[in-house]
Structure formats: structure tokens, C-alpha cells
Amino acid sequence: MIKIRFIALLTGLIMSGCVSGLDKPLPYDAWFLGFFAPNYMEVWIETADVVDIDERVYRQAMSGFASIRTPPENRGDSKGWPKRPGMGAGKDVIGAKVPRLVYVRWQSLAEPQTYDAYIEISQPIRDLMTEPTKTFCNADGKWITDYRKMLTIGLAPGGIAKAWVAGPCLAPFEVARVKGEIVTRGPYLGEMNGVYAAKLRPESQAYVDEFGIPFGSW
């Protein structure tokens, strides 16, 4: 019921033209939306939709496999999040201003289960994404002006979604952690008759068989 009211409110905002930030262009061409999953906990993203500060909706801003590592012979560890998450697998959100909201619906293939979640990007985080920051870039050994124009979201079993903003030479800054809801209709809102997009790779399946899923560690 909460979700229905939220969608109705969002629709009303879009139709009413209640917008903010119309005259604030980005200091860069586009920002990046990326996704990753803990080691072995493979994820298929059905859709990631973005609402920017002008209330414009960018559907299917990202879909497909999230970035993941699957070291052979169970040499990896799936518990917790990395201290410095990378960009993840994703795309530039071209034409959008900074995000106000990200909706993601994904298949947690290790369980398997389908979840969705709403990740709100607060005003302080939006300000951080457009704030120029002087930093030393190890990649080229120079001091540069960088921006946190990468929004990276980690997706884990149990419906956990955690987000960071970072720049090419700026350390990640945590944005939010939310617990999504189970999509009771299943994969692709029931259109696939319960069939998931893929099966776990052999390395991931071997890890899950040996150690299970570390719920509560994310």
C-alpha cells in the first residue's frame, strides 16, 4: 500500500511540473550509474529507473548483470561490502541532472528471489555530486579538480541495496542503505512464469553449496 501511494505521489509530481534545479547545469557531461554484487552472489538487474531533480524519469537506465567477482576454489569471501567499491557495471545517464531517486528491480540468483527497492538521494548528496574537489590522482600523478559523478549501488541477497558516490580519483562516500521488498509476482513481474534470467556460474554455485548465503552481513 505504501508503494502504491509513493507511485501515485511521484506521478502527481511529474504531471504537476513540480521541479527544482532547472537552471543548474551539471559541471560534467553525464553521471554514471553502476551496480555490483558481493562475491559469488550473482545479480541480474531487470530495470534501474532514475528520477532526476527536474522530475524527469529515465527508465531502463541500466539492466543486465551486476559486476561481480567469482574466484575459483572458494578463494573469495562474500561477507560484507568492500571498503572501496568500484564503479560496477553500468552506463552514463545522459541528459539527466543529478538523481533524486533510483528504483531498481533485480533477481538475486543465489537464492533465487526477486526484489525491488527505492533509493532516495538526499540534497546533501546531490550537492556533493556537483561540488568540485581538489585531489591528487594516482592514475596520472597530478593534482586535479574531480567530481563525485559515479553512483554505485551494491545489491545483495535478502533485498539489501547500498549506495555510494565516488569520483575517478575520489574515495567512495556512502549514500544510503535500504532493504527492498520481495516482488511476489516473481521474475519480470510474472511474465516469465517463475523462470529466472540465468543460473549461477559453477564457481558461485560451488561457494553457495559449501558456505551458504551470509544473510545479515550486508
Rank of each mutant, 00 (worst) to 15 (best):
I213Q: 05
A30K: 14
G76L: 06
P124G: 04
R177N: 01
F35D: 02
D52E: 01
Q205R: 14
P72N: 12
T152C: 08
G194P: 07
M41R: 10
R75K: 15
D23M: 10
E210P: 12
G212H: 10
R75Q: 13
A163D: 03
G167A: 03
T114S: 11
E55L: 12
F6E: 08
P38E: 00
P172R: 01
V165T: 13
G21V: 10
L101Y: 03
V175G: 03
N193Y: 08
P157N: 08
R126Y: 02
N193D: 14
G95I: 04
E111F: 06
V183A: 09
S20T: 13
P202D: 09
M129G: 00
A171K: 15
F136N: 11
L155N: 11
E46A: 09
A48Y: 02
T135M: 02
S67V: 03
F6P: 01
S122Q: 12
A166P: 00
F211D: 04
Y196F: 15
M62E: 10
S108G: 05
A198E: 15
I94W: 07
K79D: 13
G21R: 11
A89W: 12
E55F: 03
R5C: 05
R105P: 03
A30Q: 11
T11A: 13
D23R: 03
V57F: 10
I119L: 15
A163M: 04
E111L: 06
Y28F: 15
L22K: 13
S20K: 15
K3G: 06
F6S: 05
Y103V: 04
R185H: 07
V183D: 12
P38G: 09
M87Q: 08
I125Q: 00
F65K: 12
Y115P: 02
A66K: 09
I153E: 07
I7F: 09
C169R: 09
D140P: 02
P71L: 07
A197T: 09
V57R: 12
I94K: 15
L13D: 01
D127L: 06
